[in-house]
């Protein structure tokens, strides 16, 4: 409902598209350039939240609720993914004493 009033007050669709695209690109650039695995995880979360914003905006635009339900699914899955990811990070830290992905070079060829 809140979003609907915002739409009515004149904030057009494009702003949401541009904002979520910018958030998504920040996430992608972060994943591609940063070296710390925890920051990589945060950037992935940023990407997912950009998607959530986009879905809610489109849901409002189409006047349907299904995309908002999808957002709940994405949030649940993102939580599960963060859990698994952090436990893998702990495992990695125990073995390598670091979470810097630049040090991961045991596998190559």
């Amino acid at each position: 409902m809140v979003l609907a009033t915002v739409f009515e007050s004149g904030l057009s669709m494009e702003y949401y598209l541009i904002l979520s695209s910018i958030l998504f690109v920040i996430g992608v650039v972060g994943v591609l350039t940063r070296k710390n695995a925890i920051i990589l995880l945060m950037c992935v979360e940023l990407m997912l939240n950009a998607v959530n914003l986009l879905l809610v905006a489109f849901s409002n635009y189409h006047g349907k609720a299904d995309a908002q339900i999808f957002v709940f699914f994405i949030m649940v899955v993102a939580a599960a993914e963060a859990t698994v990811g952090l436990s893998i990070l702990v495992l990695m830290y125990r073995n390598a004493r670091s979470v810097d992905i630049g040090l991961f070079n045991k596998l190559k060829g």
């Binding site: 998504f24 994943v31 990407m47 993914e81 893998i88 390598a96 992905i101 596998l107």
Partner: peptide, 20 residues
């Protein structure tokens, strides 16, 4: 562990792209 972490980061990234 390294394989696991690499697969996870790449997979999570691909998931984000898919959802977008």
């Amino acid at each position: 562990s390294e394989a696991s972490l690499k697969y996870f980061l790449m997979g999570a990234f691909a998931t984000g792209v898919l959802l977008f």
